[in-house]
Design a protein around this nucleic acid. Structure first.
Length: 277
DNA sequence: TTCCAGGACCCTG
DNA sequence: CAGGGTCATGGA
């Protein structure tokens, strides 16, 4: 299996290593990651991106879906560029794509993100997979299933370093294993989806938005973390202590359709200190 | 040593 | 409702 598509406005580095995914690693100019039960390698050369499967099995349509290669990126960029602040950030963050990850992995990863650093999340999730996932090769393991995580006790989970988040990961896994919550999300509007997701322990508004944006490709969702809030305060003059809903409303008024992308472009540029916040 | 990291939760006033 | 403290862990 190999998938080839244009690398125009598609940065693997920005897309895979910037904190929406946690299981990709760069080796030289190649990126190796795990999607489902397959090990995948992506590299950019000659105006193309080549994705090849190193181990396990995954279909072409699943890869297309993951890398979101069929969405109209030009239209998105054009749309959010009407906002001069985003336009400026895009000089540094263009090529960043929102991929479409597996919902359970996304959910657990972002529960683990609470008061945590990207670096720590990566090592913790890696340990979680090696310990409780299924072996793909000697080196690579799949993300554990809900039923597997649901069967653990808190102490076992703590051993992978997730700390106080172990009880949330455990309780959320059990609830998902019992109720199949994640299969219901696609049929719901954003408001109901948020309500359902935030009913899970350890999931507040921000993490629910991460799941909707990064796993369900709801491009209007905007995870408001400390960086984005700084941007909204310093560049958009929004009140520093404004409520989540107020910030959400203000930004979706400017970007009704692609607010998620707009703020991810700002997040990218801000975190790499390419725009001042 | 102290502070912070892609927050959520709980307790107070 | 708003404002605080607390929760593990590792790096700066």
């Amino acid at each position: 299996m190999e998938l080839v598509f244009s690398s125009k406005n598609y940065s693997l580095e920005k897309t895979l290593l910037s904190g929406q995914t946690f299981r990709w690693n760069a080796k030289d100019d190649r990126y190796i990651g795990i999607i489902g039960h397959s090990v995948v390698e992506a590299c950019s050369m000659d105006n193309q991106i080549r994705v090849s499967v190193l181990a396990g099995a995954i279909s072409e349509s699943e890869l297309c879906r993951y890398f979101a290669i069929e969405e109209n990126y030009d239209e998105i960029v054009e749309s959010v560029s009407k906002d001069e602040i985003v336009k400026r950030a895009l000089q540094h963050s263009c090529g960043y794509r929102i991929v479409q990850q597996e919902p359970f992995e996304t959910l657990i990863s972002f529960i683990d993100s609470a008061n945590n650093s990207v670096r720590n999340i990566r090592t913790q999730i890696d340990k979680l997979c090696k310990r409780f996932g299924e072996k793909i090769t000697d080196e690579y393991y799949s993300f554990p299933t809900p039923s597997k995580l649901a069967s653990l006790d808190e102490q076992e989970l703590r051993e992978v370093g997730v700390g106080f988040r172990a009880k949330y990961i455990l309780a959320a896994s059990r609830k998902i294993n019992d109720d199949g919550i994640l299969e219901k999300i696609d049929k719901l509007n954003s408001c109901d989806a948020i309500e359902l997701l935030t009913s899970l322990p350890g999931v507040g508004q921000k993490i629910a938005d991460c799941v909707l944006l990064f796993a369900y490709h709801r491009l209007e969702r905007i995870p408001l973390d400390v960086w984005v809030k700084r941007v909204l305060h310093n560049l958009y003059a929004l009140p520093e202590k404004a409520k989540y809903e107020e910030l959400e409303e203000a930004i979706q008024k400017i970007h009704p359709k692609y607010a998620g992308y707009a703020l991810q472009f700002l997040y990218e540029a801000a975190r790499k200190k390419e725009i001042k916040v």
